[in-house]
């Protein structure tokens, strides 16, 4: 436990500056996201009545800043996870910790110990605070809790399989490509996009995200404990296939 805390303290010293830059960006991104959502809801309710041009303009500006803030938020989150994980890389044989008396499990625990309170919790708290501030009631939807955990786990999975932030971006791009390709294949096979058993509806459920979380946790633990990157990559890409199967389960079962 002492060594876990010791490594976590070291990581905190190295990531605190980026974390401090990220927190205001997170607040801005979630606030704008919520405002844009409210604006779209409002516009939906005023369908048929011409919208005032000033409101349209405001929406345009909000949307633009929102896209920038969300992009910056994603970039900073990737940078934080990259710094945290790549400092003690699990890829290759040159990392400092490999020749030091630091058990892999302890290292993983120290990373989780920092990521949960410093990255996941702020996302949940800010989301709850923003929705309460703007809508009057805090959202209790499962995705409020699930999304930060899953997104952080995805970033961490990409980081443990690569040696750098650039590597993370490349692997993330490839995985996104595989998922999009899989969705295209599913739609080509006849799976509808928005019907009850369609892709969009399936994505709003909890099961695909819990599946993604399970895949990420498996890959992260496997890579930390074995450092067999090829095998971990195989597990990760197999997980992508499982994720696609989970997405299409209702359609498959319905058609069966």
């Amino acid at each position: 436990m002492n060594l876990t805390m010791h490594v976590a303290r070291k990581d905190w010293r190295h990531t605190r500056l980026v974390l401090c830059i990220w927190y205001p960006v997170l607040v801005l991104a979630l606030t704008l996201d919520q405002k844009i959502e409210m604006f779209l809801d409002e516009r939906e309710s005023l369908r048929g009545i011409p919208s005032p041009s000033a409101a349209e303009l405001e929406y345009g500006v909000l949307a633009l800043i929102g896209v920038l803030a969300v992009s910056l938020d994603l970039l900073l989150r990737a940078a934080i996870v990259s710094r945290l994980v790549h400092d003690d890389s699990t890829v290759g044989s040159t990392a400092f910790w490999l020749s030091r008396p630091v058990p892999a499990g302890t290292l993983l625990a120290s990373k989780a110990m920092l990521l949960l309170p410093a990255m996941v919790l702020p996302q949940i708290v800010v989301h709850l605070a923003v929705t309460y501030q703007l809508a009057g009631i805090p959202s209790t939807a499962p995705e409020v809790f699930l999304a930060p955990v899953v997104s952080t786990a995805i970033f961490m999975m990409l980081a443990v399989l690569t040696p750098s932030l650039a590597g993370m971006a490349v692997l993330g791009g490839i995985m996104t490509g595989v998922i999009l390709g899989g969705l295209l294949v599913l739609s080509w096979l006849g799976m509808p996009l928005v019907a009850a058993d369609g892709i969009v509806r399936a994505l709003t459920g909890e099961l695909p995200w819990l599946t993604a979380l399970a895949v990420c946790v498996t890959v992260i633990c496997h890579q930390y404990l074995t450092r067999r990157t090829t095998r971990s990559l195989t597990v990760a890409f197999s997980g992508v296939l499982v994720f696609l199967l989970v997405l299409s389960r209702e359609w498959f079962l319905g058609g069966a």
Binding site: K10, H14, T94, A95, F96, S99
Partner: peptide, 12 residues
């Protein structure tokens, strides 16, 4: 119980 120094080793 082992001290290891390498030209390729990453340092913090």
């Amino acid at each position: 119980r082992i001290g290891y120094v390498s030209e390729n080793q990453e340092l913090p």
